[in-house]
Computed example of a mutant assay.
Amino acid sequence: FGNSSGFVYISTTHSVSFRVSFYSDQYAITFNEHGLPSGASWNLLLTEQSGNIISLPATSGLLNVPLPNGTYRYSAASASGYLANPALSSFVVNGTSSILTSHNITFVPNALAVTFVEKGLPSGTQWSVTLNGIPKQTDLGSISFFLPGGTYIYHLSSTGTYSPVTSIGVVSVANSNKTVSIQFNSIVSTVSFVASSLPVNTTWSVYVDGQTLVTHNQSMTISLPNGTYQYQVVEQGYYYPGNPYGIFTVSGHSNDITTNFVYIKYLATFHESGLP
């Protein structure tokens, strides 16, 4: 219900009535089952945000579940010979608008599951797989396909600043389900520029990738995606960099570039002539 407490001030001898409205803090979420024979039993497994798992049996094609606001994951299971698609998915309950969306679960007979499990991505990162020409994406840790036995080609794409170690591959399924592990690595690495032989607290700068880095510390760091870059170290007063220009390559690991500054100061001698 709405406000759970309040005050009422009455300054009249007449009767006064107030309307109090109550509403449910749970919302009916609909799951539609497809593909099972009529009357076949199946189970919906709901995982709450706390990690608690709820098992809900059903024998019809429609299941309504009252749930409070929150984030949930779900999977489904049935008799042998049928696999649920999607194998794992998630949804958010957020007020009355949540009841307008139904979740479809299709059971596929005589199919084998090919499940891709990612490693290396930050939690909640979107990633995708295309298997046998069928694209799927998720922000969860796995993606499943349901296909008859055979040999299939799969493709993976880079996502944000992460790239799969292998972007294309082949998977074969025969008599059992198959799991394929996918490793993602960051394609952004740190490059540190280190100054040598500069006095303490001397300001110095480097121009790289269209940016000018300035510091009074001994080193400064920039993050860059994989590629080849040019840089220029700028002279500072009487201190000149021994290697003012250079090229470096970022390829998935950190780089340190050290510049040795040389103190250059020349003695100028003046000779006078013409005076007594």
Rank of each mutant, 00 (worst) to 15 (best):
F116D: 03
Y154F: 13
Y154L: 06
T96C: 09
S98V: 03
T151I: 10
N104Y: 09
H103A: 03
H155W: 13
T166M: 12
F91N: 06
H103T: 04
T115V: 13
L100N: 15
G133I: 01
G120E: 10
F146K: 09
G95K: 01
P122L: 05
G150C: 04
L140C: 00
F146D: 07
Y154T: 03
I99A: 02
S123D: 13
T159C: 08
T115G: 06
V171N: 05
I168Y: 09
T96A: 13
I168N: 13
E118Y: 04
W127C: 02
S157V: 11
I134G: 04
T138W: 11
P135G: 03
P164C: 07
V165P: 05
D139Y: 13
V114I: 14
D139M: 12
E118L: 10
S128H: 05
I153Y: 11
I105S: 00
G95Y: 02
P164T: 00
L140P: 04
V171W: 05
T151G: 11
T166V: 14
Y162I: 07
S90N: 11
G124L: 05
T125I: 03
V117N: 09
L121P: 07
G95Q: 02
A111L: 03
Y152L: 07
T161G: 15
A111S: 13
P148H: 06
T106K: 08
G149F: 04
F91V: 00
N110Q: 10
G120L: 10
T125C: 00
L140Q: 11
G124F: 01
S97C: 11
K136S: 03
L112Q: 05
N132K: 13
A111H: 02
P122Y: 07
I143M: 08
S163K: 15
I105D: 01
G160N: 08
Y152W: 02
I134H: 12
P148S: 07
I153M: 12
Y152K: 02
S142Y: 01
Y154V: 04
I99L: 00
T101F: 12
S102R: 10
L121A: 05
G160D: 09
G149T: 05
H155P: 03
L121I: 04
S97K: 15
V165M: 14
S123R: 13
F146T: 08
L100V: 14
S142L: 10
A113C: 07
S163M: 10
L112K: 06
Q137P: 03
Q126Y: 09
F107L: 03
S144E: 07
S90V: 00
S163Q: 15
I134V: 14
